[in-house]
Design a protein around this nucleic acid. Structure first.
Length: 430
RNA sequence: GCAGAGAUGGCGGAGUGGUCGAACGCGCACGACUCGAAAUCGUGUUACGUAGGAAUACGUACGGGGGUUCGAAUCCCUCUCUCUGCGCCA
């Protein structure tokens, strides 16, 4: 949600931003907001003055009652009741106007960064920097599930029986590798000065509707039967929820947090769960980073964050690139976003393993996350950012494909060995 | 899970139907005193919305939501959370 003052003072800027995102159908929303906003203010003024009258009358009644002038008090009461009827009418209309205003406001996209490339959809995203050489293997790289099966590291048949499609059993060294990657990633972020956090894996509906739209909720969230609780789709949900309605002191910023959680997603719509293997699944685990900072620092943090992910993958000797999200592919809440993509030697292309976003104050405004600006003495909206550190088992696809050797063994990079009991490779089961 | 008690400003803590946005204390800010500081004294100090250049005015908010009333921090319902005791468990 953007600042309504920006629409009041500079609607043309907001319209241009909408055009940049190829959402011309939303252009009328700007005028709609202006009209609703004007009406809302009129209604508030009218309501306020009526309430002021009622408050004065109520005080007067108190005085009359004390003086024992019961008849006069009764007359005042009648007038007060009439006032209350009118107040109720205006409050009703005011509430309706506010709902409509909020709805229109929340459909207007966040202002995007100047440097965001203009493009209509994901086909026009722009490759940024490339890290490590993306090499084809001198032999054919099998589908990741086949690699996993050869290693004795996955049991999808049993998972389908117990839980259905979209689940997995990871076993043996592969399961250990999965944990090793998460543990390594956790320590990597701690070394960068982030605070490790294990959040609740379930959150209330109030928080869910704060952190996502109704449509997103329908498509993603699993509800716990008989409880007002949902399984989180990412730790960002509970991590950002943690700060809802809070005003932090300036000294508490930036909050630099790295959180671990399992993630649960229905994966309704979009690609569904059709993709085989462990690319798109109902349950996975993720190490995440989130930053809450002062407005002037968010661009700097954005750069740092996605580079941390790159550094992590490079340290595991996996080639990656930055893919810069173009204007049309940018979600409405985002100011700027990019994916970190890992190289797939099998497909000969990169695929998404992480996503970094600067939401500026749009998410904070929606969730009422503020900080006290010492200089101005005012409470102002903070900026929020989030980024994937690593999310296995999807990440394992990149890992296995890149570190597979011709003999079917999988190489374990130096940095992970201490989490793998010193092993330098995983070998196929006979 | 059961029973009882409770939730008030940055903190502690009064307030049980009207003049309460909230006593008092602490903290914080500014000023006076001082060579400087402590102590002391004085002044100020919630947030949000609307109008205004501003001073300010009005409105809203005493855990959340709803109700009773001319009027609710105060009464009623409900939800959440905290504390104490019992139960249960990793």
């Amino acid at each position: 949600m953007i600042d309504i003052n920006l629409i009041r003072e500079n609607p043309e800027l907001v319209r241009e931003n909408i055009k940049k995102k190829f959402q011309d159908r939303k252009l009328p929303l700007v005028d709609e907001v202006l009209t609703l906003d004007k009406r809302r203010r009129e209604l508030q003024q009218e309501g306020d003055s009526l309430r002021a009258q009622r408050n004065a009358a109520a005080k007067q009644i108190g005085v009359l009652m004390r003086e024992g002038k019961k008849d006069e008090a009764e007359k005042e009461k009648v007038l007060s009741r009439q006032l209350n009827d009118r107040i109720a009418q205006i409050e009703e209309e005011c509430a309706q106007t506010e709902v409509a205003l909020k709805k229109a406001m929340s459909s207007i996209p966040n202002m995007i960064a100047d440097r965001v490339p203009i493009g209509k959809d994901d086909s026009e995203n722009v490759q940024g920097k490339v890290f490590l050489e993306a090499k084809k293997k001198p032999f054919e790289v099998p589908y990741h599930v086949d690699i996993l099966e050869k290693l004795g590291g996955i049991d999808l048949d049993s998972a389908r029986r117990t839980s259905g499609n979209g689940f997995y059993y990871l076993t043996g060294d592969v399961a250990r590798l999965h944990s090793a990657i998460l543990t390594y990633a956790r320590d990597f972020m701690i070394d960068k000065g982030f605070t490790y956090c294990i959040p609740p894996f379930m959150i209330r509906s109030e928080v869910v509707s704060g952190v996502m739209s109704f449509e997103e909720m329908e498509g993603m969230m699993y509800k716990i039967e008989g409880e007002d609780l949902y399984l989180i789709g990412t730790s960002e949900h509970s991590m950002i929820g943690r700060f809802m309605g809070q005003t932090l002191s300036e000294g508490e910023l930036p909050q630099t947090l790295t959180s671990y959680s399992p993630c649960f997603r229905k994966e309704k719509g979009s690609h569904g769960i059709e993709e085989r293997g462990i690319y798109r699944i109902h349950q996975f685990e993720k190490q995440e980073m989130i930053v809450i900072c002062k407005p002037e620092d968010s661009e700097k943090w954005y750069e740092k964050l996605w580079n941390y992910t790159v550094e992590l993958f490079v340290s595991m000797e996996i080639p990656v690139r930055q893919l810069i999200c173009c204007s049309g592919d940018l979600a409405d809440l985002k100011y700027e976003s990019c994916d970190v993509e890992a190289w797939s030697p099998r497909q000969g292309k990169y695929f998404e393993v992480g996503s970094c976003s600067n939401l500026t104050d749009a998410q904070a405004r929606r969730l009422n996350i503020k900080y006290k600006n010492e200089a101005t003495g005012k409470n102002e909206y903070a900026h929020t950012l989030n980024n994937t550190v690593v999310a296995p088992p999807r990440m394992l696809i990149a890992f296995l494909e890149n570190h597979l050797r011709e003999d079917g063994s999988v190489y374990i990079p130096e940095v992970l060995r201490k989490y793998m009991g010193g092993k330098t490779q995983i070998t196929p089961k006979k």
